[in-house]
């Protein structure tokens, strides 16, 4: 028969059983937590081992770095997440610092060349100049690293962006939209080593003279993306796109 306690003693009994259930549950969750902790510790030690054995190769070997980063993204780990986001990856690998350092160097190159290129630099040129800045001891860096670093700069809102013009990657360090005509001009200027003239656009693109002139003058007057050369032997008036020229600092 179902027995139901009546009276004051029943209260006590119920309370008693509640307490023991609660106790049991704490013990259970405690063991679970302990287990997790030990797993985590194991993982951490393994990671630390990995970090210490491979840190140097990650920093210096671009292909290894690439593979590592792909592995991280496939398992959903951000190797750049700082300690605050719960990632001690960054701490252990030192990859965060490495990446930010590269970011600073990219900004350095972009800012110091902005005056002459109007804030647009070709990717290969950027990689070359950053490499030069880092010296030999800095190890080789690749386009991939630069793209990744530029992504880490995003939260700063400085407008660093990788754009593709005429099949070539360029890094833009000023917030400025390029219209179609400008992109076309930049693409041709790249083939010509930086030099562009109205007639070249008319011949290659079939533009009307006025359109070519307007596009070029906009780039000179409005955007500062082009420099004028009025001593050109062939066209008399030529324009130069500094971002498409290779500079020896």
């Amino acid at each position: 028969m179902h027995r139901r306690g009546v009276g004051l003693a029943a209260f006590d009994r119920q309370e008693q059983s509640n307490r023991s259930f609660a106790q049991l549950s704490t013990v259970l969750s405690q063991t679970q937590v302990d287990q997790l902790h030990s797993q985590l510790n194991q993982f951490r030690t393994a990671l630390a081992g990995f970090a210490s054995t491979h840190r140097e190769s990650i920093k210096h070997d671009p292909s290894f770095r690439h593979a590592f980063q792909q592995m991280c993204s496939s398992i959903g780990v951000d190797p750049l997440a700082g300690p605050r986001k719960g990632g001690w990856w960054a701490e252990m690998l030192g990859l965060g610092d490495w990446q930010y350092e590269l970011g600073v160097q990219i900004v350095d190159v972009c800012v110091s060349t902005r005056e002459r290129n109007g804030g647009l630099i070709e990717m290969s040129e950027l990689v070359r100049l950053v490499g030069k800045l880092r010296g030999i001891s800095g190890g080789i860096i690749t386009e991939d690293d630069v793209v990744r670093s530029i992504k880490t700069l995003e939260p700063l809102g400085a407008g660093y962006q990788v754009v593709e013009i005429g099949g070539r990657k360029m890094v833009r360090s000023v917030v400025k939209e390029l219209d179609d005509d400008q992109s076309a001009v930049l693409a041709i200027a790249q083939q010509e080593g930086g030099r562009i003239a109205e007639d070249i656009l008319v011949q290659r693109r079939g533009w009307a003279q006025e359109r070519a002139r307007a596009a070029l003058e906009n780039m000179v007057y409005r955007d500062g993306l082009c420099w004028l050369d009025d001593q050109d032997e062939q066209y008399g008036r030529a324009y130069w796109v500094p971002s498409a020229m290779q500079w020896d600092l």
Binding site: V220, Y239, W247
Partner: peptide
Amino acid sequence: PSIHSAPPFFTQQPNPTTQSIA
């Protein structure tokens, strides 16, 4: 400096910002 071998360096730039840099 390398800018000395850039042809447009020898032209007065119509864009005032560019000109002041040059």
